[in-house]
């Protein structure tokens, strides 16, 4: 094992250990926040694989998040499936949707790719509204507390919910950490840095990008399904443009193309919005200011700047 991979193992397992410790150290309010943050970080990690590592900026990831969310929610509420099966339904739906979007959207590049993904997500959001009699539109629906039992564990309690979120987070976190160091992940980075060159080195860039969209979309869908299951609510808000912008914001803030960036970004943004919404109802103002400042002064994000200035080995 090289020195760098030893460091990165320490970093990843250390982060998970820290999250375990925080459960015992933090007051209940922050523990509740942290459960939510970890699930959203899974969403951010899914987005980061595509944006940070592959260099493809999707402005429509809410479609995948919402697909997972509605896949699980409707499987449970409309069709009465148990939560384990419903989770699979949610993820399978996300895989199907991301495959379709990938096949279509990857025919475009650059700005057109952003707009195409934005448009598909918008169509998805409007579809949720249009079929309001099934999806309950803007109002959304609640998944009953009695139903929210996963693998025999009642996940509505603070403790079980925290550890369910932590397990999910850890699996995806380690998976991504493994993936980005694998030949597959290095090829994604190569595509991000110079697609034409990568193609002319004999890599099938089209297939790699499609796989990246599918994996990214599926992880986002998994996050959406888990969010619905853990917090018991499914609503059209999660399909809006705003929820496509959030992961971009988190990842940019934390550091695109770093394994730890998404978590850092979600933590910062979550508390920033939490604090500012106490002061004003215009809490999204903070998001706007942060986005502009980031593009101007720290395009690499927090973890990215740390990597650039201090720890070059940061994964």
């Amino acid at each position: 094992m090289t020195k760098n991979s030893l460091y990165s193992h320490c970093l990843h397992f250390g982060t998970i250990a820290l999250l375990v410790a925080l459960f015992f150290l933090l007051p209940a309010y922050h523990v509740g926040n942290l459960s939510r943050i970890m699930v959203l970080a899974v969403y951010a990690m899914g987005f980061n694989l595509l944006f940070g590592y592959t260099g493809l900026l999707s402005l429509g990831h809410a479609l995948f998040f919402a697909t997972g969310m509605y896949g699980l929610g409707m499987a449970m509420n409309t069709f009465g499936l148990p939560s384990e099966l419903a989770l699979i339904v949610g993820v399978v739906c996300a895989i199907l949707v991301s495959t379709a979007i990938g096949l279509l959207a990857l025919r475009t590049t650059g700005v057109a790719f952003m707009i195409v993904t934005l448009m598909f997500a918008q169509a998805g959001y409007l579809t949720v509204l249009y079929f309001g009699s099934y999806t309950r539109g803007d109002e959304g629906f609640v998944i009953q507390q009695a139903e929210r039992i996963f693998a025999g564990v009642d996940i509505t309690g603070e403790t079980s919910r925290y550890f369910a979120a932590l397990i999910l987070f850890s699996i995806v976190f380690l998976l991504i950490a493994y993936l980005v160091r694998s030949p597959f992940g290095r090829t994604l980075v190569a595509i991000r840095e110079n697609e034409e060159r990568t193609k002319m080195l004999g890599y099938d860039t089209v297939r790699h990008k499609l796989l990246a969209v599918i994996i990214s979309g599926s992880i986002s869908g998994l996050a959406g399904a888990a969010y619905a299951l853990l917090f018991g609510y499914v609503g059209a808000t999660f399909a809006t443009v705003q929820y496509s912008i959030f992961p971009l914001l988190w990842v940019l803030l934390g550091g695109a193309g770093t394994t730890l960036g998404p978590l850092i970004g979600v933590v910062f943004m979550f508390y920033l919005i939490d604090l500012s919404s106490e002061l004003t109802q215009a809490y999204m103002l903070i998001a706007g200011v942060v986005l502009v400042l980031l593009t101007l002064f720290a395009p690499q994000g927090l973890a990215g700047e740390i990597r650039r200035k201090v720890f070059k080995w940061l994964p």
Binding site: V189, A190, E193, N194, E196, R197, M200
Partner: peptide
Amino acid sequence: TFQITSVYAGL
């Protein structure tokens, strides 16, 4: 090899 240099400038 490309006529116009095409390496991974960021790596």
